[in-house]
């Protein structure tokens, strides 16, 4: 590798290194926004990411402490949702849709309510002690409790 680089003109090599460096810096925020899963500040339950996954697959309807869960979703295709579905629910959006269609049309579940932005989720979680939602980590404030960031 080094020998190959050393044969290149110094300027070109430098430029290439900068370009790669710049790409590496951009990549994390571009390819995967960090997602925070949030609940109301008064919710003291110990909630794992596995619990969150189960909630969004309708496999659990209550928090570990027994309280009923009001799960909040975001618009399909939004950055937060794409990331959340892939990292936490571990499905892609099409699979998630087919999965939920089986629950909806058999009466086994009502899908989480869809909010149209991170701000709307934040507001709903602040106002509802039973709520759980996900937003981009940058949007988190101290008015909600973060269960985990992924």
């Amino acid at each position: 590798m080094n020998t190959k680089f050393s044969r290149e003109p110094a300027k070109a090599a430098l430029l290439r290194r900068y370009t790669i460096g710049a790409l590496l810096m951009i990549a994390p925020s571009f390819a995967s926004a960090e997602i925070a899963v949030i609940v109301n500040v008064n919710n003291k339950d110990k909630i794992t990411m596995e619990d969150v996954q189960k909630t969004y697959l309708a496999k659990t309807k209550t928090f570990p402490g027994g309280g009923k869960i009001v799960a909040l979703d975001q618009t399909e295709g939004s950055t937060s949702r794409v990331e959340f579905v892939s990292k936490v629910v571990k499905k892609d959006e099409a699979q998630m849709k087919a999965y939920w269609s089986r629950l909806i049309f058999t009466g086994k579940g009502v899908p989480p309510k869809v909010m149209d932005s991170d701000e709307a989720v934040l507001e709903a979680v602040i106002g509802n002690p039973s709520a759980i939602g996900f937003i981009e980590a940058d949007a988190v404030t101290d008015k909600v409790r973060v269960i985990g960031t992924i």
Binding site: K97, A98, S101, R102, F105, T106, G107
Partner: peptide, 19 residues
């Protein structure tokens, strides 16, 4: 009144999108 869940896909037999 509901579908009888004899098979894996009985419940959503008519929901082509689900399979």
């Amino acid at each position: 009144r509901f579908r009888i869940p004899y098979f894996i896909y009985s419940d959503t037999l008519d929901v082509g999108y689900s399979y």
